[in-house]
Design a protein around this nucleic acid. Structure first.
Length: 114
RNA sequence: UAAGUAAGACAAAUGAUCGCGGCCGCGGGCCUGUCCCGCGGGUGAGGAAAGUCCGGGCUUCACAGGGCAGGAUGCCGGAUAACGUCCGGUGGAGGUGACUCCAAGGCCAGUGCAACAGAAAGAUACCGCCAGACAGAGAAUCUGGUAAGGGUGGAAAGGCAGCUUAAGAGACUACCGUCCGUCCGGUAACGGGCGGAGCCAUGUAAACCCCAUCCGAAGCAAGACCAAAACGAAAGCGACAGGCUUGCCCGGCCUGCUUUCAGGUGGGUCGCUGGACGCGGCUGGCAACAGCCGCGCUAGAUAGAUGAUCAUUCACGACAUAACCCGGCUUAUCGUUUUGCUUACAAU
């Protein structure tokens, strides 16, 4: 991804959980925290409650693809953690993408289009 | 044609755009690293990748030899690196059949358990039958004989028929079964023949146990290497910086800098995929499998790569995502399809 890297270590996730702010909707939960750089770092978490390995991989890919295609509209300099909820297992790409943009608006991190 | 049975094969397809992990090539960048960026090519999950139930390779540790404990397996022969797997047999069970299924050693080594029912469960007479006390006969009572019949039970002491008998009973006889001996066939499990014993005694070993065979432990987060840091050791360096030891000097100690060694955290590299490999053919073998020849190279990530959108077609897409690698087992699964065989029906 052009403007972003991924969160890798558990302590990075824990830092965002403790210090960030969160909003949730039906399918996803989003935590954000400014990281002091000019790039975004994104982490996706899908627990075993969501489903088996195949389902978890599919949800992860849908969230990553949604973010990749909508990357340009997000503000920079943020650590973002997206947690999938169990209801996300049964929906398609369109629902995940609209859900992601909805959470972005709640966080006020969507760039205002001129 | 229908139903069945056995052994396999496949696991939606095609195109376009965007995107991701390895690999190769080219170009560019600078901090010249086997780094970063771009472009192109090629490649990228399964039949079970799953459960982690067995077995082996590999790695580290341990190890003179033997025994005990513990665990696993359990008809016979073979295959194999090995197995609890596979193949071929034997015995038993099911099916008209093709075929399928089987924890299939030992309760005369010892110990334990067997509810309820039933008269009685290592023994037994409740009903019944018969004889006697018993008389002309019957009933009742008592004594004795009896396991043919009844009833209970998973199981009642070989089965069935006959002979005998007061009534009965392997007490006796034939056949079948069992056990023992012997002969023949078979590598063996076992099968068959002949002769003998009237058959002294339940079930359970997926109860403890006995017998035979096998088993060192932990696992790729194994392990090997490179190495910031922190904590250390040694040597050297100012004609001598600071502090302590004294009032001063020498000497000693601590701090400083450099080098070497040790150390092994953050991190990195390897292990990491060419292998008991796949496909085809020939040879040996009933087969599992083995040998030889030819061709092929087919993921290697490290928070973890296969997705999204659009279009077309159809049977409208199940179960399920490698994580060191193999051989099996078990379980899940929308469906499509091939071949052999069996039974029934029809036609010739």
């Amino acid at each position: 991804m052009k403007f972003s890297e991924s969160l890798k270590k558990n302590h990075q996730f824990q830092f965002v959980y403790k210090n960030g702010i969160s909003y949730a909707n039906r399918y996803l939960i989003m935590y954000t925290k400014e990281n002091g750089t000019d790039r975004n770092r994104i982490g996706i978490s899908v627990s075993k409650k969501v489903g088996n390995s195949v389902v978890r991989h599919r949800v992860t890919r849908l969230v990553r693809e949604s973010y990749r295609l909508q990357e340009a509209v997000f503000n920079s300099g943020l650590d973002i953690v997206i947690v999938a909820r169990p209801s996300a297992a049964s929906v398609g790409y369109k629902e995940i993408e609209s859900s992601l943009l909805h959470l972005g608006k709640l966080h006020h991190i969507i760039k205002v289009c001129s």
